[in-house]
Computed example of a mutant assay.
Amino acid sequence: MTSRRNFLQKLTLSAVSLPLIPNFTQNSQASMNHNTKKASTLRVAIMGLGSYATRVAKAMLDSKNAKLVGLISGTPSKIKDWQATYNIPDKNCYNYENFDAIKDNPDIDAVYIITPNALHHPQTLRVAAAGKHVICEKPMAINAKEGREMVEACNKAGVKLLVGYRMHFEPNTLEIIRLREDGAFGEIKFFQGLSGFRIGDPTQWRLNKELAGGGAMMDIGIYSINGARYMVGEEPEWVTAQETKTDPVKFKEGVDETITFQFGFPSGVISSCLSTYSTSHLDKFFLNGTKGFAEMQPSTGYGPIKAWTNKGPLNFPHVTHQTVQMDRMAGIILDGETAKIPVDGREGLKDLIIIDAIYKAVDTGKKVKIDLT
Rank of each mutant, 00 (worst) to 15 (best):
T2F: 15
T2K: 15
F7P: 09
L8E: 13
K10E: 13
T12D: 12
Q26G: 05
Q29D: 05
Q29W: 03
N33R: 13
H34S: 08
K37A: 12
S40N: 14
L42R: 03
R43C: 05
R43P: 11
A45L: 10
Y52F: 14
A57F: 03
M60W: 01
K64G: 01
V69M: 00
V69E: 00
T75G: 06
I79S: 02
K80L: 09
Q83D: 04
N87C: 10
D90S: 12
N92W: 12
C93Y: 10
N98T: 15
A101M: 11
K103M: 13
D104G: 11
P106V: 15
V111F: 03
V111C: 00
Y112I: 14
I113V: 15
P116Y: 03
N117Y: 08
L119Q: 04
L119V: 00
Q123I: 07
A130I: 10
G131Q: 11
K132P: 11
V134R: 08
I135P: 06
I135T: 05
E137H: 07
P139I: 02
I142A: 08
N143F: 01
N143A: 03
E149H: 10
E152S: 11
A157N: 08
K160Y: 14
V163A: 03
Y165G: 03
Y165C: 05
R166A: 10
M167D: 11
E170K: 14
T173G: 08
E181C: 03
I188G: 06
Q192K: 11
Q192M: 07
L194K: 15
G196M: 09
R198G: 10
D201M: 14
T203P: 00
Q204N: 13
L207F: 15
K209E: 14
K209T: 08
G213C: 07
A216D: 09
A216M: 10
M218C: 12
D219I: 10
D219K: 08
I225K: 02
N226P: 01
R229F: 01
V232M: 02
V232C: 05
E234T: 05
W238V: 00
T240D: 05
A241H: 13
E243K: 14
E243S: 12
P248C: 09
K250N: 06
F251N: 12
K252G: 07
E257Y: 14
T258E: 14
I259F: 09
I259R: 14
F261H: 07
F261K: 06
T276H: 00
T279M: 07
H281W: 09
H281K: 13
H281M: 12
L282H: 09
L282C: 05
D283C: 08
D283Y: 05
K284L: 10
N288H: 13
N288E: 15
E295P: 01
S299T: 07
A307R: 02
W308L: 09
N310W: 00
P313Y: 00
T320F: 11
T320W: 04
H321T: 02
Q322Y: 06
V324P: 04
M326T: 02
M326C: 02
D327S: 05
L334R: 15
D335F: 07
I341T: 06
V343T: 15
D344R: 02
E347A: 12
A357G: 08
Y359E: 06
K360N: 11
D363F: 03
K369W: 00
I370S: 06
D371Y: 01
D371R: 04
